[in-house]
Design a protein around this nucleic acid. Structure first.
Lengths: 209, 209, 209, 209
DNA sequence: AATGAATGAGCATTCATTCAT
DNA sequence: CATGAATGAATGCTCATTCAT
């Protein structure tokens, strides 16, 4: 399924290799590209670098990808597929489960974010790419929102909140944790962060009871 | 020759001082660079484009800046200086003044953010540049934090909060408003956002009383 | 092993001789090359295209031909052999038989010409190739010339003509008919053309009597 | 005027240089291109070769021409402009003046033909280019034809000739003289050739009287 | 000081050719 | 024998940077 999607979106160009070997080589190139994109950024990374870093010749790169951008798109679709939006459970039993749920997925997201940051510049010039990333954000947003609305229906949240905005705020915080850590050098205290977010959402009674 | 005569007749007065003229040309280039960086991104913008867009020849560009990166740095220092961190007032009288204060500065920040987003990719490879931007964030962070701590000392906030993290969260939310608006196409409702943030910080009694 | 057994059981008969099979594959490649050369030109046609269009893998191409140029040469020798110069008959009975004879061969020549046009550029750099084509032209020239001389000896032509040049002129006209048709989109009126050529050669008395 | 035409047809791309120096350099490149195209053919000639042979760097080439094809087109328009079709005079006074007229222009045409031969292959793939060349041929054809028709009206030619075809034949003969000379190594005897052509056109009475 | 022509290193991409399977 | 994945030399083209005018 993911393979099917991949083809449609990325284009059919250089044959989805049938042999396992070739598939492996393709993956090696993808991984090589991902690492270099995250390390050096998209524009400065050359196709030749990606190939060399993957241990193959430049010609081989072009056998599997029509260009750098194709590889990037493939990478994104891969990542997006891995991040199957998990079930949006977030009961009143313990809102801090919110944290647990998020944390679990968060390290998967880290990869995605790694790319996300790299791509910021591309968004300006590459609307197709921008669309892909925006869709990804929308899925996350929808997921968080649905959890919030469930909680709201159960009457455990503030009643006057614009849950859309709450979801957006949470998303933004999540997305920026990697930056925070990179800049400060500290691991984020997720428990503390969870508390903060819960303060936004739940009235005190709910929190203490 | 004619230039010499000209001077003698008209006198030296009306001639704009050379330094000032040069300064103006420099500023034109800076502005030209800023616009193009924000419009097309850093890497894809060429020195020649910047020069042409500023109405000068490429050679002139290199008279004022050693290269594109230099111009960018100059741009950042300029911007940073403009953003003199305003006084961190945030009393209990009306916490929503927080919003006002932020909104006021926010549109100055917009410009800065414009660049900020453009630069994300550069941060990876250019530690000096990264340092500049991180310092900028730290100033903002410090400003928000100092307001929060003032409030905390007055006893109007939750007492168990890690204000560092609160400040960071607020900063992140602020920084991402432009992205939100670009993606959703909607203007942000700052009042609603302010409410949200206040929920994080102040216990209900404080809010209602 | 299985191949060995196979032979013993089935016998050697029904197996198409290897050489013949190989010969067939070789011909398929030749034909494929010819079509693509005529369609797209020599330089732009890649070895892989020829192979793919012939339904074989690129490796197979290199088993039969050392490179593109080899295939081209083979093609020319083939073509040249097919065009066994027909008997140069061209009596005074009816000079317009000239036309008939030429027309008959002309469509064979068309193919040859197809290649001929394609090759023009190559002639510049590839003396061996040029030689092949020049030889081909010389055969044609000789054939036309011999017919003319026969007629001259019979005393039916102008006596003061340089038959070498007449033959050359006719050859050139013949060779360029395809270009004429491609450009004008019209079928050539061979009868008219024949008349023209006869005017060159035969005095009026001969034409009318 | 020719400059104006040039722009319209070739495109405005790399600035028609204003300084004389630059104009000279442009011409050097054109000449360099012409020589190499004729010597080695179009496809095999690289932009770098043209630049090096002109004594400039590759970057300079691209300052003046957007690519090889542009240079070629410029070359053709130049050539075409030089060949302003001369007045089509061809009286019965002496039809062999036809020859003189043709011969005179012929060596100008030689250059054009030099390119013409080189381009044959391109015609297949480059319809715009083909159009240019076909138009050139049409001009020549029209010029020859108008001369023939003048003569016909004066009643000095055969009356039953398809002058379109006669003109075409003459054109073809003219165009191929260079090939003839290159292959045979002999100078063409234009007087003889003229005689031949006159036999096509004029009845004997006219020739002898 | 300003100009913009010239330079050439560098990147993307293609394609003839080889060779392990 | 056939295959097609892998290779890397070669080409087209861009762009930062220099320098003569």
């Amino acid at each position: 399924m993911s393979e099917h999607e991949d083809r449609q979106l990325v284009g059919t160009f250089p044959i989805m290799p049938k042999q396992e070997r070739a598939q492996q080589k393709r993956n090696t190139l993808l991984e090589s590209g991902r690492e270099l994109f995250i390390k050096n950024g998209y524009e400065p990374t050359t196709a030749k670098e990606i190939a060399t870093h993957a241990g193959v010749a430049i010609g081989t790169f072009y056998r599997y990808f029509s260009d750098k951008r194709q590889l990037l798109l493939a990478l994104l679709y891969n990542q997006l597929d891995k991040m199957l939006p998990p079930e949006p459970s977030w009961d009143n039993t313990n809102p801090e489960q919110f944290l647990a749920g998020i944390l679990e997925n968060h390290y998967q997201q880290l990869e995605q974010i790694g790319l996300h940051k790299v791509l910021t510049e591309l968004l300006i010039r590459d609307p197709e790419l921008a669309e892909v990333l925006i869709q990804s954000r929308k899925k996350w947003h929808a997921r968080i929102l649905s959890g919030l609305q469930l909680a709201k229906e159960k009457g455990v949240t503030w009643t006057d909140l614009d849950m859309e905005m709450v979801a957006w705020s949470i998303l933004v915080i999540l997305e920026n944790i990697p930056t925070k850590e990179k800049e400060s050098g500290l691991k984020t205290d997720y428990a503390e962060l969870a508390k903060l977010i819960c303060r936004m959402i739940f009235p005190p009674k709910e929190m203490t009871s």
